[in-house]
Amino acid sequence: MEGIIAVAIDNLTSPMVLFFALGFFGALARVDLALPQPVAKTIALYLMIAIGFKGGVGMTESGAGLGALAPIAVGIAVSAALPFLGYYLLRVGSRLGSTDAAAVAAHYGSISIVTFLTAVQVLQDRGDGGEGVLVAVAAAMEAPAIVAGLWLAARAMKASAAANGASKGEASGLSMREAVLNGSIIALLGAFAIGWLTGPEGMADVKPFFSDPFKGVLCLFLLDMGAVAGRGLVQNRKALDIGTVLFGLYMPLIGATVMAVAIWPLDLSIAGKVLMMVLAASASYIAVPAAMRLALPQANPAIYVTLSLGVTFPFNVVIGIPLYVAVAEWFF
């Protein structure tokens, strides 16, 4: 318990969480601290390239071989499985219809790269930022949940049409390009590959730009994320019933637990296992919302975006990450 409290205090007083809180509470007070959209996009690209590059360099330094594939395989399996669990929990515990439940569930099988970045920085400050392969795991876990969520939605729509005789439309498919090849994944994996190829010599060349300012840039981005999360919650809170809000708080814990069990036998550091848990606990609010808008327009974006960004993201940043660190140090 003392360990959890110590980690929680460290996290709550870190610049990253404080800047997030500034943006969040500013938005609740109707003060606009959001960055212009092109600036936010540039910063997001910088962060993904920086963490991808660093992960690739880490792979060179650790001499990782085929054994590095195990976390990726486990990540894909958990990403594909969590939407089924999430869908069932939402149908039982909230007022969401089947289409909205499928869309929300897909978000919780996928990952939040910003939550991952924040966790990496927290762990770095504690002395170990985790293995480089975790970046590849993050990229691999983006898409399987989208496929699972769309399958759930298509099945639900068919069942509804058969029962009621009226069709609400169909879940249209996604091409491989639309589901998998989005800018975030390409930036992450591309930088990862470049870091792996260039190794420590490459890192020495770019360290003043991609490594030294990273934490400060992350603080700026979290200020923006806090503002966006707060604004979304203010505008769309009525779209969420209490059961859905609770889902946004307990599903991360369930995801982290499922992943903790799945990675038990893997040869990863404590920090690496924490990052795997963070990935399973996080919910997408960039890639999956875009996919849902395309393939499942019948689902309400106000529900899935507000839940993942306004409820789960703040929960993970403020409470989740220190909790997963403390639990991992105790459990493993």
């Binding site: 959209q37 996009k41 609010y285 974006p301």
Partner: peptide
Amino acid sequence: EHGLWTRDGLVSEADG
């Protein structure tokens, strides 16, 4: 239907 929104308050371009 979902209230006021602006580009600067969006997480990604897909939301706009």
